[in-house]
Design a protein around this nucleic acid. Structure first.
Lengths: 338, 338
DNA sequence: TGATTTACGTAGAACGGTGCACGAAACGGG
DNA sequence: CCCGTTTCGTGCACCGTTCTACGTAAATCA
């Protein structure tokens, strides 16, 4: 085993010996706990500084807090997620918490593994972003570790908090904006879903879409095109939708993740946007805002979602046990694709 | 403290009691160590299954391996990095290792903190991607934990391995491609750097650029435009370069991170690409390949870099102590911007 | 001044595992 | 049948912290 100089690692005992005090005293100083005199604190801090001592998170976790939070991202490729991460970070770092990220690859079993790993690492709390884990399973884990879920609607959950974009309202904004431009043939591009995943964002947006189409008296013209989780890559299916004879003239897309490729394929096919095809996406990710893409999108303010989620987690760690379910108002970013 | 039912957590002792064996026996089964009979193993495994036991990584880490590796990403916004991550994951997950990601925000002190945290968490090894930590500091950490560094040239380092794109060659390919199209006025857009960061990729590419310009007899026409780490956002400076009276007709850009915005700003300014301005980037990130962007780029095969780095780390954990420094051949992806 | 309270510091038992050293049982060769 | 080897399984001392319980000296009060 090539583990370097592990034999002379400086532990709490080294410091205690050096400062001529007990192990417990050093521990107290580290946690700035009650019952240490100024003199002792200074002596200990001097030794810590001198020896470059850092406490072992692993050992600390066996009894106390680790001051480490886990962030579980559904995947690492989605350009929207960094904003959520930054929001989380902004709040937690001022409170002295460290973040560890796990990447779920949009796969349920894998996400479960990661959650278990974070629990096993004795993290103090967990923020799950756009997880694909069904409610009951999440509930079981949430009982073991303070948890906040972002981008997954479980408004009745007791054991964890949720933070979401108001996805139905967002969908309505998108459709109404298209309607206002004179469009009536408005389709939606959504993820496939089965009842297990009703809490995910795409189904929520789809329900919002269907509701507003009805409100506008367009219920019979509502039409949902689907992409599959397993389509990898998605291009072929998107192209098929755009070349079909009954191609829609306006599409509300569940995420910029698909709206950006869609806009590109349209261009390749010589379909003018927005003249021949109007497009509104969701997320307002950084690619959508590039001038060459210029995709109208519903902004769900990932940064703020992250901040709110982090704040909720901290109060939950602090002892709160009644669940909070927070909805964040989205807003339309009009761009040339509209 | 809201830590759920931590009082009835199932530990190794619970399992031992349930199976009617000693704690040590269960430990042996978990590690499939020598000296357990088939009968005992089966009995213990049955109990583990029944109780849903999972060992605490924290506790295990205090003596043995944690089977967790740390991945330190320079930032989470760069769309090139996911490919490296996927490469790492592909190799490590088949060997039963788990990955934990830390995000450095391109800030040295912060990266150092993260490394310390990973050491304190008793991770078995560390892969640092595009870190900004200077060699000597890295060396100190690498003595404490098996380390592989990606995207940072330290060919003389003894204590850790490096995996890199052959950045000089990559730069040469880009410049030669522009040269072949008839360009002579070829500038480079590079990151600012001071001597401490000479090992980072941008300075390496810059040296490659200068070398090939000399080879081509264009030494006196070589010109390096710089963006600053602190430019946030970068748009203003990029725009300034494109509106200057002596604007170059061809630019090799140190990364698609800047080449994509550059291409967009050019479009906004009505500068035709490639007729008025030819562009080659580096990384071949997913945005560059969008048809509407269509940016020529040097592909450094992040996926492969990740795989190679992970393999190196595993052999280093296995006991290898002589350093390996691996260069990966880049290749040009010609697109319409060229 | 003696009795309490308060402040400070320490000993030592956790925490949940690992892994060494040891003893008992099973095996096997002469 | 005896004795040296293996093979198994166990007891226990760690690992580096936290935290409760407790002892002691100083400070306060009556």
């Amino acid at each position: 085993m090539a583990d370097g100089d592990s034999e002379n690692r400086v532990t709490i005992r080294t410091v205690a010996a050096d400062a001529g005090v007990s192990v417990a005293a050093v521990s107290k100083v580290m946690r700035n706990a009650y019952g240490v005199s100024e003199a002792l604190r200074l002596r200990v801090e001097a030794s810590i500084e001198k020896l470059g001592y850092r406490p072992s998170i692993a050992a600390r976790g066996m009894r106390g807090q680790t001051f480490t939070l886990g962030v579980l991202l559904v995947d690492i490729d989605n350009p929207f997620l960094p904003s959520v991460y930054h929001g989380i970070e902004e709040v937690t770092e001022t409170k002295g918490y460290k973040l560890m990220v796990g990447v779920g690859k949009a796969h349920e079993r894998r996400e479960a593994q990661l959650i278990e790993q974070m629990i096993d690492n004795r993290m103090d709390g967990l923020i799950m972003v756009a997880s694909h884990i069904p409610g009951p399973v999440m509930d079981r884990y949430a009982r073991q570790i303070p948890t906040v879920v972002v981008g997954h609607h479980e408004p009745l959950a007791e054991s964890f908090d949720t933070v979401n974009s108001d996805d139905r309202t967002g969908a309505q904004m998108a459709v109404r904006a298209l309607y206002a431009k004179g469009h009536r043939d408005i389709a939606m591009l959504a993820m496939e879903w089965d009842p297990r995943y009703e809490a995910d964002v795409s189904p929520q947006r789809e329900q919002g879409y269907l509701a507003v189409m009805k409100e506008l008296g367009l219920a019979d013209r509502a039409r949902v095109l689907r992409v599959l989780q397993s389509d990898q890559p998605r291009e072929d299916r998107l192209r098929a939708y755009l070349t079909a004879p009954d191609r829609p003239r306006a599409i509300f897309c569940w995420s910029d993740l698909d709206a950006v490729p869609l806009r590109n394929i349209a261009w390749q096919l010589g379909i003018r946007v927005p003249e021949d095809l109007a497009l509104v996406g969701y997320d307002n990710n950084p690619v959508a805002s590039l001038p060459l893409i210029d995709l109208a999108s519903i902004d769900q303010d990932g940064h703020r979602m992250g901040r709110v989620a982090a704040e909720a987690l901290l109060t939950r760690i602090g002892g709160r046990s009644v669940a909070e379910h927070i909805l964040i108002e989205p807003r339309l970013i009009p761009r040339r694709s509209l």
